[in-house]
């Protein structure tokens, strides 16, 4: 999810039909520049080098979403395609349409991961690790990172765990709730909002993250650290 405002201009995006390492390339209808969806950056055309502002979103079930946001609006269906055209693809062993740029057997090709890139550093959090450890406190370079995973809905979010200059350490305390060690405050793990305690009403900042297959991510970020596999 990105803002469509770039350098004071509102862009409209279309599907270019091109791929970079198996990941969609968009084009904008104003300048015809090409944009990498994964990087959020123009890679060709007059806007090359411009970046799209990342906007936080959530993947979850309809039931969970409407419980959280009863006033939500919901996309009307019926444009085209009643079933997910990638269904068979998810379960096949095939890695993308052009094959992999490079092999990396630290994870299986189609393992699902949450990827986070901070500057030149990238870390992946495999779903299978997150299933056992749904709250992860990590550090990517100087960036304190908190990953919260909802195994029920296969939905993960990543936060900056520094608040007002203090780096907090979180643990799971129940149904998608987390508690920081420093104040004992309780937070909503998916929205990052303080619920009770000293940090009631405080808000953790979301960091850009990408849910992806391992093979797609590692082609872009081959030097990624795999959480749980540190030597």
């Amino acid at each position: 999810m990105y803002s469509r405002e770039v350098a004071g201009q509102v862009l409209e995006f279309g599907v270019s039909g091109k791929l970079i390492m198996n990941v969609m390339v968009m084009y904008d209808r104003q300048t015809n520049s090409l944009w990498s969806q994964l990087l959020g950056r123009a890679v060709e055309g007059s806007l090359v080098g411009e970046e799209l502002e990342f906007l936080p979103s959530w993947q979850t079930t309809w039931q969970d979403w409407k419980t959280r946001y009863p006033e939500t609006k919901v996309l009307v269906k019926g444009y085209r395609g009643l079933r997910d055209p990638y269904l068979s693809y998810y379960s096949s062993g095939q890695a993308g349409v052009i094959g992999e740029t490079r092999r990396d057997n630290r994870l299986n090709t189609k393992d699902f991961i949450i990827g986070v890139a901070v500057g030149d550093l990238a870390v992946v959090y495999p779903f299978r690790t997150l299933n056992d450890q749904p709250v992860i406190n990590d550090l990517i370079g100087d960036q304190p990172v908190l990953v919260v995973f909802d195994a029920q809905n296969a939905s993960g979010v990543v936060f900056d765990r520094e608040v007002d200059g203090q780096i907090l350490y979180f643990e799971a305390v129940g149904e998608l709730q987390i508690r920081d060690d420093q104040s004992g405050s309780i937070w909503d793990g998916l929205t990052g909002t303080g619920i009770s305690g000293d940090y009631a009403g405080a808000q953790l900042k979301r960091l850009k993250s990408t849910t992806a297959f391992w093979f797609g991510w590692k082609d872009f970020y081959p030097e990624s650290r795999v959480f749980g596999q540190e030597s």
């Binding site: 599907v15 990941v23 969609m24 993947q59 990638y86 993308g96 992806a212 297959f213 797609g216």
Partner: peptide, 8 residues
């Protein structure tokens, strides 16, 4: 949901 593997 898997946003990044497309057009396959």
């Amino acid at each position: 949901a898997f946003g990044i593997i497309l057009a396959s």
